[in-house]
Design a protein around this nucleic acid. Structure first.
Lengths: 154, 154
DNA sequence: CAGTTCGTTCAATTTACACTGAACGAACTA
DNA sequence: TAGTTCGTTCAGTGTAAATTGAACGAACTG
């Protein structure tokens, strides 16, 4: 499968484990749900890697676990709606990070003010720093406004 | 500097070298341009790391190189307008990747059609795969439309 | 209860990569 | 020309992360 290679490369470019990308690529073009063993065999990687990989993908809501009646095996299939996938990850991952960064920026502003009052910072230097921090804050809030919009369009 | 720590963590979360983040954080709140040696000393890392780090940041247009008259040293300062930074990286990096992914998707569609004609794929399986690839293509073009808009808003 | 068949966990290995020190070339200086 | 002062390059080192095989526990089966 060509698709496996594409998603594998995408993942490792993003700093994520390559094997997770392989698994997703395989499942994305698979007609039926695959068991852990089938995935391991198809990709020629160990069962252990598949086990950890599937748990990661489950955490990102990228795949789902399904069961077949009278079969103890776990089967996996993709969450085919990628828009839904992006939404879920935005809410569960990016959103909290963005909120945290906003708080962090406020802390930095306070530290800067403290440095000015304690005399450890020249007034002109203070002005430059303050302007830059405010620029960052403006960018941060613009991003926070943009993402819900992007969420709608995807 | 607290800022150095923040940007360093941001970088390594993105799978980028931590030291590049440190350099950017240092320069972002520095009032004047700093030389390679000054950066190395302030961050307690080797000159070699600073040399490679600055070249990375230059490649992303995140910092600029400036010179002082009668001084052979290279000095570095941030590209303070982060909106401009994002724009430049979109045009020089994301945009080409997006175009490439579009072509890649077209290739995959062709491969799929070929598999159908060669009889190595059931018609029902073909339908599922085709639908999923088309879903990917739709997402791809939505992203390609969204990014120029985002570019304006940031 | 012994024997399978699952998935997970854990220690160990391998791999990938950031980082460093030392060597180097270029551009100046005396 | 010999000697500095820069920045870069490169081989070697250290370390964090991915991957694996083996051991394990749980859920079934005969």
């Amino acid at each position: 499968m060509e698709m496996v290679e594409v998603t594998a490369r995408l993942c490792q470019r993003l700093g994520l484990p390559r094997s997770s990308g392989q698994i997703f690529g395989l499942l994305y073009l698979s007609t039926q749900a695959l068991s852990l063993d089938e995935i391991a065999e198809a990709l020629e990687i160990s069962k252990a890697s598949v086990s950890t990989g599937t748990r990661q993908l489950l955490g990102w809501h990228a795949i789902r676990q399904v069961w077949k009646p009278g079969d103890r095996k776990d089967y996996y299939e993709v969450q085919a709606d990628l828009g839904e996938l992006l939404r879920a990850n935005y809410l569960g991952f990016f959103r909290p990070k963005l909120d945290a960064s906003k708080r962090k920026l406020a802390v930095l502003q306070e530290l800067l003010d403290a440095d000015l009052k304690s005399g450890s910072l020249e007034a002109t230097d203070y002005a430059v720093c303050k302007e830059r921090l405010e620029s960052l804050t403006r960018l941060q809030s613009r991003i926070q406004k943009l993402l819900p919009l992007a969420e709608k369009l995807l």
